[in-house]
Design a protein around this nucleic acid. Structure first.
Length: 197
DNA sequence: CCCTGATTCGC
DNA sequence: GCGAATCAGG
């Protein structure tokens, strides 16, 4: 669909009434939220509180351009590995228990992408800690140290996509729960191990 | 995870 | 001009 005069008028009206871009989009039909926002801007409508507009510190908005990468397909992070029977992370980041050295255990197959950069997502001055306030979906939330202690912080490296931790800490957190195999004859057959993709 | 608006840039 | 993809934040 295209932007007919009627649709533009509707957009203007609803935008100024304060409806969100999504609401306008499905009221109009056949347009995405992005289309609405894009059009609104081109029409010169604007200035509605944006979560991002605080913008804040000296980070203007350049960011990494897409640049020329036509060959790059889009890896839709579709079905991430998260079934009901997924293995539980060992250290609950919110819990008091800090990461504990992992006993040597077979590592299940992990969906680890490419090697990740070793530095935190947001380069910090040496000595700067990754605090609670720095956490987001994109940075590794593996706790380092003990909560409450002065030097407690989080890992902060980029996450393994779809997980709360970086690849290294995913490897720590997600380890197959193999049968304990004490001498005791097993009382019941083990349920099938959860598949980890 | 859901959501918001803003911006970029290939088409 | 258009809007998907991305960003940055709640």
């Amino acid at each position: 669909m295209s932007w007919t005069d009627e649709r533009i008028e509707t957009l203007r009206s609803l935008w100024e009434k304060g409806l969100t871009a999504s609401q306008i989009a499905d009221k109009l039909g056949n347009v995405s939220r992005n289309a609405v926002i894009g059009k609104a801007h081109r029409l010169g409508l604007k200035a509605r509180p944006s979560p991002v507009k605080g913008d804040s510190d000296g980070t203007p908005r350049e960011t990494a351009k897409k640049a020329a990468a036509p060959a790059a397909p889009k890896p839709k992070p579709e079905a991430a590995a998260q079934e009901a029977s997924a293995p539980q992370p060992r250290p609950a980041p919110e819990a008091k228990v800090p990461p504990v050295p992992a006993a040597a255990a077979p590592k299940p197959a992990m969906p680890v992408r490419a090697a990740m950069p070793a530095a935190p997502v947001k380069p910090r001055a040496p000595g700067e800690k990754v605090t609670l306030l720095d956490l987001s979906d994109k940075i590794c939330k593996w706790p380092i140290g003990h909560p409450g202690e002065p030097d407690f912080q989080f890992c902060g490296r980029p996450v393994n996509p779809g997980f709360p931790y970086c690849t290294a800490h995913c490897a720590e957190a997600y380890q197959a729960q193999l049968p304990r195999d004490r001498s005791r004859p097993s009382r019941a057959p083990m349920p099938p191990l959860p598949r980890v993709r």
